[in-house]
Design a protein around this nucleic acid. Sequence first.
DNA 1: CATGCGTCCTGCTTGC
DNA 2: TGCAAGCAGGACGCAT
Length: 281
Amino acid sequence: MPELPEVETIARGLAPGLLGREVADAATFCPTVLARQPDPAAFRRMIRGRTITATRRRAKLLLIDLSPRPDRVGDEPVHLAIHLKMTGRLFINAATPDPPRHTRLTVTLGDGQALFFQDARRFGTCRLLTGAELEAWPFYASLGPEPLDLDDAAFAALLEGRRARIKALLLDQAKIAGIGNIYADESLHAAGIRPDAPADTIGPAKRKKLLAAIKRVLTEAIAAGGSTIRDYRTAEGLEGAFQKDFKVYGRAGEPCPKCRGRLEKTTVAGRTSTFCPNCQK
DNA sequence: CATGCGTCCTGCTTGC
DNA sequence: TGCAAGCAGGACGCAT
């Protein structure tokens, strides 16, 4: 379940193996991995011969920027936008015609290596888009601000007049982009706010505390290389370490690390939510 | 308009 | 021990 810190870690980890490399070829092994993109043959034609110029992240979306094709006058740069959803993994390894289980896409590089996209659950998607197409993609266009760039005034405006439960709002990518179930639960616990609290009932002090908690949790998780529950690995194939620092996620029934009260499990916005009824009000 | 819930998909975990 | 049901969850489509 790669969220912002995991995707950021992967984007950084891919850079050394991808930047400046030319794309020799691409192959798909799953009919749905390209979403509503052109057919696999068109995808190959569109990506071959380009040079990778950047690996970056927007919300939970991994973006690989590619140069124009040098043999085509006036060709535009494109972006490979990869959403890992729950079980997607990206790594670089020696190119092979017979890739490992659950490989959905390979992008072969000029140096004999290849980018592998593995996704057991097949929820993940890859799109190859021009700049204009990326901006026009409704999901991309609707993404809210990056939490690490958010200031208190903008966060206040986000919560103002909203009766939605705070956790539903934190998970809504159009309101604030990049937070998923893990970091929503961890941030709300750190700020002492119940996940089912209506957003507009949170006062200024708690609101500031929540934004600071979100930034701190995300920053610490990036520093730890993300959180590995089951599937997530860094681009180097390593597990993250932040799961060791979870205070509430996946710990229902255990004592709260703050007050020793019993952590409880409930459902908010259709997702399992763990919180401490004693120190989250 | 805003919110909520079922759907997609597969593998691991739980319970009988 | 074995098998089926349950659960996980990001984004989306549809319902309320």
